[in-house]
Each structure stands twice: as structure tokens, then as C-alpha cells.
């Protein structure tokens, strides 16, 4: 069963430098599916195109090519009008994603009303309080009239998660949902998301640059580099037995106190020439050429930067 299918997604951005116009391909033929109750992590560095994929799924950006189809439980595609009921997004920065002018209640009541899930003032109020209780913001009746600046970062992100659930979404795109939060509350928010996922059988796309939470929090991992998916597979396989040299580089660079004492002076490695044109699929257990997608440009293949001129 599939909740959302992404096929050959392409996004080009026009670049103007002086009079010359060219395009930058931010996402190059990315395909994957999201399944109810499962989490797919999209892992990559800044500029890898992972947030662009999220924005296209949330319909904040229009794809240059390819398809995004949301599917109902019975397998029929979701119409354009219902798309926003079905697919919702949690933004990275809870300090920016809530309107400072409005109350918490406003943030939750609007989607409830917009998507016809609540009728009348009393029903809306009741549902808002239910949502707040689901994300552990209690007592709900004192939380609802507050404004964002009266809440901590973790509490704000809980409101943002509740907002995504308000329209009854089946697919939640979480774009770095905890990277702006204090470390000691990150796991609490991730665990909350995991509980809601179990309760509602949500399909979650978790976008992050943090390999450790990606491994523990998701079922499958896609590693993106320069707009390409360079490795995909079950979470543990990708992190513990990476095959693509970029994934290896990422795993080696992540801070890991378990390997404390490894010499920091060691080079984290580089991306091998042949890996610029292929992707590794752990499910099939084989390398695949990029096919329709262009090879990764050579100049970009040295993310660690040249040390000596």
C-alpha cells in the first residue's frame, strides 16, 4: 500500500549572472514511495536538494518535471482539491513557522475549519483542545489562548505538529523538525512524532542532516547528494554498511563519541570517480547507473574542500 508516490522528480532553478542565463538542477530524477505507518528519511547536506523535494511535495514549489501522486487508502489518486487535506508539512524553525500575531488556537482552528473538520465554534474549540492534548500541551484550555512568544521552542514545534495533523493528513513531511531545538528536548519531539505516526498510521518523510536520528527514527533512508539519490535502503544497512563513497564520507564525518580517540587528523575520505554516475540500492543489493539523471559534476565532488590550493 502506498500513501504518496514520487516519480522522476526534477526541479530546475533559473540562475541569472549578468546577462547569461542558465539553470541549476536542484533535484534530478528522484523517485520514492511513502507507505502508511513507515518513515522514510531523506538525508543530505545543505544544497543536496532535500528541502526542495519537501517543498514540492507540500506544493510550495512547482516541479519542473516528474510526478507527485498522493493515494487514498483504496488506491485511488487524491484530487488536487483534497491534496492539502492529505499532505501536510512541519517546518524547520518553530520560531518562524508560527505567526507571532495570532494565538495558538488560531493556528489550529484555521486548518480545522478550512478542511471542514470542525463545525461551529464549540466543536472547533473542542477539537483544538483535543489536538493540543494529543501533542502533550496540557492543560489545553490554558494553552489555546497563548501566543507563540509565550511558548518554548519545543512547545512551538508541538503546536506545528498539531497543525499538520489538524486537516487529517495521512502524509506528513517533516523538514528538519528538531534541528532548531535544544538538544535535550529533540528526542521528546521526535518520539511524539513517532507516537502520532503509530496512532494515525501516518506516512512520514523525515528530512534531516543528522545521520544518527535518521537511523533510529526511520525505517528507510535515502541519501541525497547534489540533487541525486546516491544510496537507498533499510536504515541500519545504509548507516552501518554504507556502500556509496559519499555516504561513507558522511558517516565518517558525523561526531560519534563511541569512536572517540579516532584521530581527528585523518582525512574523512573523498568521493570516488565512478560513484559520480551511480547509486546503490540495498533492497536489490546492486549498483545502478543514474539513467536519465545527469552525472554529478566533478567540481562538486570534493565537499571537504581542497586543503592545499
Amino acid at each position: 500500500m502506498t500513501a504518496l508516490e514520487v516519480r522522476d522528480l526534477v526541479k530546475d532553478y533559473p540562475i541569472r549572472s549578468g546577462l547569461r542565463r542558465s539553470t541549476l538542477r536542484a533535484v534530478d530524477h528522484v523517485s520514492f514511495t511513502l507507505t502508511p505507518g513507515r518513515t522514510v528519511a531523506l538525508v543530505g547536506e545543505s544544497g543536496s536538494g532535500k528541502s526542495t523535494v519537501a517543498k514540492m511535495i507540500a506544493r510550495l514549489e512547482r516541479p519542473t518535471g516528474g510526478e507527485i501522486v498522493a493515494l487514498k487508502d483504496d488506491g485511488t489518486p487524491v484530487s488536487d482539491r483534497e491534496y492539502r487535506d492529505h499532505v501536510q508539512m512541519v517546518f524547520q524553525d518553530p520560531f518562524a513557522s508560527l505567526n507571532p500575531f495570532h494565538t495558538i488556537e488560531h493556528h489550529l482552528a484555521r486548518p480545522l475549519r478550512l478542511h471542514g473538520r470542525a463545525k461551529g465554534a464549540d466543536d472547533t474549540r473542542r477539537q483544538v483542545e483535543q489536538l493540543l492534548e494529543r501533542v502533550n500541551l496540557t492543560p489545553a484550555d490554558t494553552m489555546a489562548p497563548r501566543r507563540p512568544h509565550e511558548l518554548s521552542g519545543g512547545q512551538r514545534q508541538r503546536v506545528a505538529i498539531a497543525r499538520a495533523l489538524a486537516p487529517g493528513a495521512q502524509v506528513v513531511v517533516a523538514d528538519e523538525p528538531v534541528s532548531m531545538l535544544d538538544v535535550s528536548i529533540r528526542l521528546g519531539v521526535l518520539n511524539l512524532l513517532a507516537r502520532l505516526q503509530r496512532e494515525d498510521d501516518l506516512a512520514v518523510l523525515y528530512i534531516t542532516h543528522d545521520l544518527a536520528t535518521a537511523r533510529h527514527f526511520s525505517d528507510d533512508i535515502l541519501v541525497m547528494y547534489r540533487g541525486h539519490v546516491v544510496e537507498r535502503g533499510p536504515a541500519d544497512d545504509v548507516i552501518l554498511h554504507p556502500r556509496h563513497s559519499y555516504t561513507k564520507l558522511l558517516a565518517a564525518a558525523a561526531p560519534n563519541p563511541d569512536e572517540r580517540g579516532r584521530s581527528l587528523a585523518e582525512s574523512p575520505g573523498a568521493i570516488s570517480q565512478e560513484d559520480l554516475t551511480r547509486t546503490y540500492d540495498h533492497y536489490a543489493g546492486e549498483w545502478r547507473p543514474f539513467g536519465k539523471a545527469a552525472p554529478i559534476a566533478k567540481a562538486l565532488a570534493d565537499p571537504a574542500g581542497t586543503r592545499r590550493g
Binding site: 510550495l60 492539502r84 501536510q88 508539512m89 517546518f91 513557522s97 508560527l98 484555521r110 497543525r163 486537516p167
Partner: peptide
């Protein structure tokens, strides 16, 4: 982001 969020909410 809150404007983007409002757009996502429809």
C-alpha cells in the same frame, strides 16, 4: 515560514 505554513494549510 508561517506564511508558507498558511499556504500549505490551504
Amino acid at each position: 515560514d508561517y506564511v508558507a505554513a498558511a499556504r500549505v494549510a490551504g
